[in-house]
Simulated assay, not measured.
Amino acid sequence: MVKELRLALIGFGTVGQGLAELLMEKRDWLRAAYGLDARLVAVATARSGFLARAEGLDEAELLRIAASGQPLTAYAAAGVKRWPTVREGLVATGADVLVEVTGTNLRDGEPGLSHIRQALEQGIHVITANKGPVALAAHELLALAARKGVQLRMEATVMAGTPVLSTLLEGLAGARIRALSGILNGTTNYILTAMSQGRDYSEALLEAQRLGYAEADPSADVEGYDALAKTLILAALVFGLPLRAEQVQRRGIAGVTQEEVRAAQAQRRRIKLVASLRLREGVEVSATSPSGQGPALPVEARVEPVALPLEHPLARVDGVMNALTVECDTLDSVTVIGPGAGRRQTAQGLLADLLAIARTRT
């Protein structure tokens, strides 16, 4: 028996197009292996508004239009309807799953936060790769999803398609996690790797920008804000803690010097930007009994350059790769290593979440 899931895709940039490519490429295999007919029935962008077609949209045609630089309103199939905003389009058409992949905004989470809230209120499952809404409001959004009897899944927000959130929540079910430490930003890891090979910070940053690993304004990466957002997501999902940004000790890599790198190497250490969450001694935290308000936090949360000994599992994770080490009571230490960004890689995280939702539907 084949299950149909109707998808509304909000955002059609790099990640949205990556998902459209995977859906098109894997359509027959998804039907055969998973009994899933994932039908894209709506797509929305700020430029083109919300387009929907009950019979489904042709991903190849959407990708062709996007590649040509035209607005998606150039899609001319019969039966396509358009609304100027996502809010109006979702109210009018609905969907089984909203895939929210608009750009990350770490200031207030918008417009993604409003998109996700509305979909959950309408009883629509949500999958997102957008760090802003879940970093700032994961607790609220997860509670809303639970009240509405739908799922909010966010595998792609932390390490793209590398299965780290599902490992923590499902693969390590039953384990008591004591601490997490990770390399969660590929740009800074690339820069620090280049510095370990003798280049200074400014030279390594320019190289990262030339290769497309760093933005023209790299501050979100090099000042640690991207890694901080992922730390907030992990705190909410693993420890049930609605931490705020100011409760995380943050220091980026802009101040790391070649002299510090060489000094670390002389001591058989490597400098890495490490995001960490560690339970304080004698404190138990339940994901169903969240705390985290007030001055006495049950976890220590940090994002900072750390000189790791070479035997540490994160010390030799180089280039743009990401990794997360988990300390727990049953397996002691587990490290997951994989790509933390990329068009196809992030789309894989979204696809995995879609299949997880499909498995729960009757």
Rank of each mutant, 00 (worst) to 15 (best):
S68G: 15
W29F: 09
H139W: 14
S219W: 06
E281D: 15
L355F: 06
Q345V: 15
R176P: 02
I253E: 04
V303W: 01
A323Y: 00
L331P: 05
A216L: 13
L314I: 14
V158N: 04
V317H: 01
T362S: 14
T93S: 11
M1D: 04
E284W: 13
L211Q: 14
L314R: 02
N130V: 08
A245R: 14
A54Q: 14
I116H: 01
L62S: 06
R87E: 15
L113W: 07
E260T: 06
V299A: 13
T362G: 14
G56W: 00
Q293I: 08
S48V: 08
R87I: 03
L168P: 11
S286W: 11
D329F: 05
E203F: 00
G11F: 01
P313I: 12
L331G: 11
L277P: 14
V99A: 05
I177R: 04
P133E: 11
K272T: 09
G252R: 12
G79T: 13
I124C: 03
Q265K: 12
E110W: 09
D217W: 02
E246T: 10
D318H: 11
L211C: 06
H125P: 04
G212R: 07
A307G: 11
G240S: 09
P163T: 10
I10D: 01
L36V: 15
L184E: 01
C328H: 15
Q247D: 05
A235D: 13
D318P: 00
R64V: 02
V320K: 12
A352M: 13
G49H: 03
N189Y: 07
T325W: 00
E203G: 09
A20Y: 05
G69Y: 07
V86C: 02
L172K: 04
I10L: 05
